[in-house]
Amino acid sequence: MLGGWLNQIVQGVLLGGLYATFAMGLSLSVGIMRFVNIAHGDLIVLVSFLILTLTTTLGLSPLAAVLVTLPITFFGGYLLQRLLLQRVLGKGVLPIILVTFGLSIIVQNGLLGTYGADTRKVAGGSFETATLMLGGGVNVGVLPLTIFLSAIAMVVVLDFVLYRTRLGARIRAVSDDVAAADLIGLPSARIYATAMGIVGVTIAISAGFMSIWTNFDPTSGPSRLLVAFEAVVLGGLGSLWGTLAGGIIIGIAQVVGAQVDAAWQLLAGHLVFLAIFMLRPEGLFPKY
């Protein structure tokens, strides 16, 4: 019995790793540009469909497909920021929400029109089903474990980029005080666009993981957005390690909820989020 619970918690932690990868890009855009991209989940789904197409039509392996999409999503994020989001940044909350909201609906329906409403999944081969038996009733799938370790690696790499590189210092400077950056000659628009390019890279990675591990369809975006948002808020705005912790909490809540009753999985995640949020609205590891 105890082993069963322990196993559930481990599964929750691993699921949290996937959620953390969804949330990483959102955490960056929230921390740096101070806006929540409502289309974040839909962009993850969009890239998942791209990976699906690359694997099915070109016969690429999922890993190769993700590698191919990385530059595409980097420039996609860059251009999205430069051509669209930058125009409404700094004009208050409403325009940026409306624009990303419109984008979300466009992406969802564009995908529906192109791929239809069917549920899809990318085949990951034997890798997908391999399991490690850890004793004590705890089984760990190789794929979830890889995703979890990648989530940790993402935090480490992003932290390094943000706090140890020239680019990172510039990104933090612009996020501190964009008007001051403009005054002293930092090209803030380009820096924001680069940051959004990095967000695009995280989106490609999370899309790669999601498309192998879970089913998705063109309307899966909002649920990914909500989970990512919850992880970001629980972790504390702007803290990447906090985002990972937030993802893990939602993951555990969902798996344990599903254990009580399969239909409770999503509701349990939301309820745990709301409860912790009411107790600690600033999140667990607030940075600002």
């Binding site: 933090r172 400077a173 501190d176 005080d177 008007a179 001051a180 950056a181 005054l183 002293i184």
Partner: peptide, 10 residues
């Protein structure tokens, strides 16, 4: 700049 405008978290 007026008011210093340093990047406070750097």
């Amino acid at each position: 700049p007026e008011g210093r405008r340093l990047f406070s978290s750097l």
